[in-house]
Design a binder for these strands. Structure first.
Lengths: 132, 132
DNA sequence: GTATCTGCAAACCATTTGCATAGAT
DNA sequence: ATCTATGCAAATGGTTTGCAGATAC
C-alpha cells in the first residue's frame, strides 16, 4: 500500500480528500504490518487529527475495503485491519492476539497444491495459522 | 469427539448430565465437520430438546471450550464452533462463509517448517486458508 | 436435600446507521 | 453552489450475565 497511489485513486474516483481520510491512509501505511484494531488505529490517527470520530474511521475503512485496499477481520472480540493483501501467512497467537506476517513461498506453494489435490477452486489469499 | 467419552468425562468431573447437555454433545458429534454457528446449533438441538434456551447452549459451549472439546471462532459476524481440534486446515470461503476441513499432512508439515525457519515457537493448530 | 443448571430477560459493547452541519471541490 | 463527508448520538444485534425457579444427583 503506497500513500500517493491510494490518494490518486481516491481522487480519480471522485472521493474528497479530507484531512481525516489522508491521515487514515497514512496511518494504514505506517501500521501496514501491525494488524491494528479499529481502536488502536483511531488512537493512532488522533495523534495527527484529534477530532476524528470513530464513525468516520469506520466508514472510511469500509470504503477502503470495498476498493480492495484492506481486509477487516475479527479476533478476540474486535475488528482488526489487514493491510497486506498479497497472499501470505499470518501467525496468530491465540493467547495474546498478536498477528505476525510470515512470507514463505514454500509453505504457500504446499498449500496451493493441497487445495488442488482436494479439488478446491479459488485462490488462497490470507492464511491464518493459529498458534498456541 | 466421541459421545460416550465426553459424557464420561463430564460425569467424572461432577457435571450434571442434563438432557440439554446430552443433546448438545450429540449435536456436536453429528455436526463435527460442519463448523455450525451458534444459532444453527440451537436449531439443531431444538429438534430433540425443543425448550432449550440460547443461554444454556451458550454456557455449555463455553464449558466445553474450557474443557478442550471445542473452539469458538468468529466469521462474518457470528460465532461458530470448531469441533475437530486435531491440527488441520480449514478452507474458508470468504464469499459464502462455508468452512471445509482439509486434512493434508504435506501442507501441515510445510507450515511447521516455515514456522521453524521463522523462529516461531508454539505448535500450529488450526490453519484457516481464506479462499475467494 | 442441596448444589448445580436452566431459561428468561436484561445488560453489554463493539459495530452500524441516520441525520444535521461542515467542508472539499 | 453543490454534493459529499464528518461527527454526534442513537440503533442494532450477537453475545454475555444475573437470578429465581427447576432438576440431577
Amino acid at each position: 500500500m503506497e500513500l500517493e497511489s491510494v490518494l490518486d485513486e481516491l481522487r480519480a474516483k471522485g472521493y474528497k480528500l479530507t484531512p481525516q481520510r489522508i491521515e487514515i491512509v497514512k496511518a494504514l501505511v505506517e501500521e501496514r504490518y501491525e494488524h491494528p484494531s479499529l481502536n488502536r488505529l483511531l488512537e493512532r490517527v488522533r495523534e495527527k487529527a484529534p477530532t476524528i470520530s470513530f464513525s468516520t474511521l469506520y466508514t472510511t475503512l469500509k470504503m477502503l475495503e470495498e476498493l480492495g485496499y484492506v481486509r477487516l477481520f475479527y479476533l478476540k472480540g474486535e475488528t482488526r485491519v489487514e493491510v497486506n493483501l498479497d497472499p501470505h501467512i499470518n501467525v496468530v497467537n491465540l493467547r495474546t492476539g498478536d498477528v505476525e506476517d510470515l512470507v514463505d513461498e514454500e509453505a504457500m506453494e504446499a498449500l496451493r497444491r493441497a487445495l488442488e489435490r482436494a479439488g478446491i477452486r479459488g485462490r488462497p489469499t490470507i492464511v491464518n495459522v493459529m498458534v498456541e
